[in-house]
Design a protein around this nucleic acid. Structure first.
Length: 500
RNA sequence: GGCCCCAUCGUCUAGUGGCCCAGGACACGGCCCUCUCAAGGCUGAAACAGGGGUUCAAAUCCCCUUGGGGCUACCA
C-alpha cells in the first residue's frame, strides 16, 4: 500500500470517557500529519454514544491536548464544517433511521432479549466450554412478540444479521490482508435499547457521511473491523481505507492505562515538557523516517511521514528518552522563547513548584534574560527552572556548615578560602566573568590552594548549592553586593559551627 | 478457551535475500574536556525468541513452537 498523494480526509474520534493518553493522542497526531502532508482535512468527532461513561472533564482534556500539541483541526466541535454536527449524541436521529432501514431491508432485526437472559446464556456457554456468543434467538421473534415486549417495557435492541459462514477480508494499510471467518461473529447490536447506536454503527455512518477516506485508529479495532465491513455491505457503501496503528504499551507491556503513571499529554505538559518535543517524540513511536534522524522539525515530519513506514509492532513509552529530547529542544530554543516557556512555571506559587513566595511577581524578565545563557544547556524540563535559578531571585541563601567545604577541606581551611575570596570580592572591578576568573585563579595560587578548593566554597556560599552554573558568570550575574553579603554570612556560619 | 495481531540491544528503532559475525538514539560503564553540574568528544558492554524448511546465500521468505498483546459487551 503506497502513501496517499491526493488529499485525505481523516478523523480523530475519541470518546469522552477518560483523559486521552499518549497512544490515543499519537493516533490524532498521525492523522494530523498525513492531512497536512496531502493538503487534506483533519476532522475531530466526539463519540459520546455511551451516556453512562460520559465525562465532561475528559472532553475538555481532549481539546486541551490537541491544542497544546498544535493539532488544529479543520472540522469539528466548536469549529464547524459542512458535515456537522461533530458530536454523535447530536446525530442520534440519523442512526435510528439507518438502523430501522436495515431492519426493513432484512439486514437487521429487533431483539428483546434482556441483559439478564444474555448473561445467563453466556454463563451456560462458559460452563459448557463454548465460546460465549449471542445465539441469534431474536431472528425468530415475530413482530407481534417484539411489540408485546415493547408494551411490557422490555429493552429492545437492533442487531445486524451476520452470515453464519464464509469469510470476510480487508486490506490493512500497515499489515496487509487480514481475513476472518464469519462464523466467528455473532449478530451484534447496532442500536442499543436507549436508542443510541453502538460504536460500530455510528462511526461507519459518520465516516461515510463525512467523506472520511482513511480510518486511522489503534490496533485494538482490527478484531471488530469485519463488523464494520458488514455494516458497509448492508448499507451498500464503500468502506474507507483502514490504517491500524500499533498500540503504545506501558513498561509492563500492557495497553497503556492510568496505572502506568503519567500517560496523558497534559501531564507531560505540567511536568515541564515542550509540545514540540512531545510531538517529535511520540511520532517516533511506531514510525521512523528510515534513516537515523530523530530530532525533526514539524515540517520535516510532515514532509517525511509515510503510512508505509508505520511499524507493525507495538512500542513501549520511554519517558527517559523523552526527557533527553526535551533537553535537546530546550537547548535549541532562542532566549525569548525559553523565557516565555519558563516564566509560567517559575511564577507558580511556591507550593506548586514556583519560586519562593517572597519573590515578587511578575519576575524581572530583563534579569531573567541575562540568566538564561547560564542554565539553558543544563535544563531538561521547564519545571527545573525554579530550582536552578532560585538563588538569583532570593534575598539570601542559607548553606549549612557541612555543605560549605569542598573536597578534603576542613572548616578552618574553608574559612581561610572564603575570607581571602571575600577580601578580593570587595575590590574586584570590573565585576565581569573573565576578569573575576583571572583574579580568583591568581588568588588560589597565592594562598596555595587548588582552584577547585577555592571555588567550591564560594559556589556553595553564593548559590546555596553544590551544583550551579559556572562560578564567575554566576558571581557576575548575582552582583558584587550580594556576593559579599553571602560570603560574609557563610564565614559566620562556619565560625559559629566551630564554637558550638 | 476461540479468533486476530505482533516478535532485532533494557527501551525507541535501521534493516524489504548478499553491503550485517547487524547500524543509530536513549539509558548504563570508561576516557577526554573541566571551577561543580551540565553540554560536547571518543570509547565499551548490549539484540535478530526457538526449531524446521526454501535458497549458492536468510534478521529479511514459508511452516511450526514459544512468548506477548488485542478482541471476544446494549464500552469505545
Amino acid at each position: 500500500m503506497t502513501n496517499p498523494t491526493s488529499p485525505v480526509r481523516v478523523r480523530y474520534a475519541p470518546s469522552p470517557t477518560g483523559i486521552p493518553h499518549i497512544g490515543n493522542i499519537r493516533t490524532a497526531l498521525f492523522c494530523w500529519v498525513i492531512a497536512q502532508q496531502t493538503n487534506g482535512q483533519f476532522i475531530v468527532r466526539i463519540e459520546d454514544t455511551d451516556r453512562s461513561r460520559y465525562d465532561s472533564d475528559a472532553e475538555k482534556a481532549i481539546f486541551e491536548s490537541l491544542q497544546w500539541l498544535g493539532l488544529d483541526f479543520d472540522e469539528g466541535p466548536g469549529k464547524g464544517g459542512l458535515h456537522g454536527p461533530y458530536v454523535q449524541s447530536q446525530r442520534q436521529a440519523t442512526y435510528v433511521k439507518a438502523a430501522e432501514k436495515l431492519v426493513e431491508s432484512g439486514h437487521a432485526y429487533y431483539d428483546d432479549t434482556t441483559p439478564e437472559q444474555l448473561h445467563a446464556l453466556r454463563e451456560r456457554q462458559k460452563a459448557a466450554k463454548q465460546p460465549p456468543r449471542y445465539d441469534g434467538r431474536g431472528r425468530h421473534r415475530s413482530p407481534e412478540e417484539i411489540e408485546e415486549s415493547r408494551q411490557a417495557g422490555l429493552p429492545i435492541t437492533i442487531r445486524l444479521k451476520v452470515p453464519d459462514h464464509g469469510k470476510i477480508a480487508f486490506e490493512d494499510s500497515v499489515r496487509g490482508k487480514i481475513t476472518f471467518e464469519l462464523k466467528e461473529l455473532d449478530d451484534f447490536v447496532i442500536l442499543k435499547s436507549d436508542q443510541m447506536p453502538t460504536y460500530h454503527l455510528a462511526h461507519v455512518l459518520d465516516d461515510a457521511s463525512m467523506g472520511v477516506t482513511h480510518v486511522i485508529r489503534g490496533d485494538e479495532w482490527i478484531s471488530s473491523t469485519p463488523r464494520h465491513l458488514l455494516i458497509h455491505q448492508a448499507l451498500g457503501i464503500t468502506p474507507p481505507k483502514y490504517v491500524h496503528v500499533p498500540l503504545i504499551l506501558g513498561n509492563d507491556k500492557a495497553k497503556l492505562s492510568k496505572r502506568h503513571g503519567a500517560t496523558s499529554a497534559l501531564e507531560y505538559r505540567d511536568m515541564g515538557f515542550l509540545p514540540d518535543a512531545v510531538f517529535n517524540f511520540i511520532c517516533l513511536l511506531g514510525w521512523s523516517p528510515g534513516d537515523d534522524t530523530e530530532v525533526m522539525a514539524r515540517k520535516d515530519i510532515i514532509n517525511r511521514f509515510s503510512i508505509d513506514r508505520i511499524n507493525d509492532s507495538p512500542a513501549t513509552f520511554d519517558a527517559e528518552k523523552l526527557e533527553w529530547m526535551n533537553g535537546v529542544y530546550i537547548r535549541n530554543m532562542n532566549t525569548d522563547d525559553l523565557i516565555c516557556a519558563l516564566l509560567p512555571f517559575m511564577e507558580k506559587p511556591e507550593s506548586d513548584g514556583g519560586l519562593p513566595d517572597s519573590v515578587t511577581r511578575p519576575i524581572d524578565r530583563v534579569y531573567l534574560k541575562q540568566l538564561i545563557p547560564l542554565v539553558q544547556e543544563r535544563l531538561k524540563l521547564l519545571t527545573e527552572g525554579t530550582e536552578t535559578l532560585d538563588f538569583f531571585f532570593k534575598e539570601n541563601v542559607d548553606p549549612s556548615a557541612e555543605e560549605l567545604p569542598g573536597k578534603k577541606m576542613g572548616a578552618a581551611m574553608t574559612i581561610q578560602a572564603l575570607e581571602a575570596a571575600l577580601a578580593l570580592c570587595k575590590t574586584s572591578s570590573p565585576f565581569e566573568p573573565e576578569f573575576l576568573e583571572s583574579e580568583y585563579r591568581a588568588l588560589a595560587e597565592k594562598i596555595q590552594m587548588k582552584p577547585g578548593q577555592l571555588f567550591s566554597p564560594i559556589r556553595v556560599a553564593i548559590t546555596g548549592k553544590k551544583f550551579a552554573p559556572p562560578l564567575f558568570d554566576t558571581m557576575s550575574a548575582l552582583g558584587q553586593d550580594r556576593c559579599i553579603t553571602r560570603m560574609e554570612k557563610a564565614i559566620l556560619t562556619l565560625k559559629l559551627s566551630i564554637i558550638a
